[in-house]
């Protein structure tokens, strides 16, 4: 794949793979990521940012940011990855390159707690209003425990669903 060879000449490539005929994967360092994205956009025709996603590698202590780019003329996708520190996750925003990145970064900030420096709206809540715990998409967040504590038991322990009448529940609550 010629695009991968070109990239290997110019940047520090940690990992590269041709997944399919129309999909390639490139892993790079934190430092080289933004020059690589700009190079792909301006010189190679990968004009569209499809999405940004984030993967939690809890064993390594890393977050992996994945930028999915699309070349409309060659009909080719490329995934650009980089790993950042998990303890104090911080990265440069790319909303000046692609304005639509603002919303994706806002979502990643909400779901993983990654701080995108320079993104003006990332602190506004997107779907989690008044969130009071660690970001929910991190793998050390126990979603079942949180759900049981906040929203109550799903059903009684016996396994048979016996629902108390609402009026009994009022009485119980009043007695307390």
């Amino acid at each position: 794949m010629e695009i991968l060879d070109k990239l290997k000449e110019k940047f520090e490539i940690l990992q590269s793979q041709e997944k399919r005929k129309d999909l390639a994967l490139v892993g790079t360092t934190e430092k080289d990521l933004i020059p690589l994205l700009v190079y792909l956009k301006e010189y190679e025709g990968y004009k569209t940012l499809v999405m940004i996603s984030c993967v939690d590698w809890i064993e390594e202590g890393k977050f992996e940011l994945v930028y999915n780019l699309w070349n409309p003329s060659k009909k080719h996708n490329i995934l650009v990855k980089t790993k950042i520190d998990r303890e104090a996750p911080k990265f440069q925003t790319i909303y000046k390159i692609w304005p639509q990145a603002e919303a994706y970064e806002r979502e990643i900030h909400e779901m993983f707690g990654v701080d995108f420096e320079g993104n003006p709206t990332q602190h506004e809540e997107l779907i989690l209003e008044d969130w009071d715990d660690i970001p929910p998409m991190r793998r050390d967040f126990d979603t079942l425990k949180y759900s049981m504590e906040k929203f109550g038991e799903r059903e009684p322990k016996s396994g048979i669903i016996i629902r108390k009448q609402i009026s009994e529940q009022y009485d119980e609550w009043r007695r307390k």
Binding site: L128, D133, P136, S147, F151, G152
Partner: peptide, 12 residues
């Protein structure tokens, strides 16, 4: 039922 933001019981 184990989602972090979907409520479990509406009648509460």
């Amino acid at each position: 039922y184990d989602s972090y933001n979907a409520i479990n019981r509406l009648d509460l």
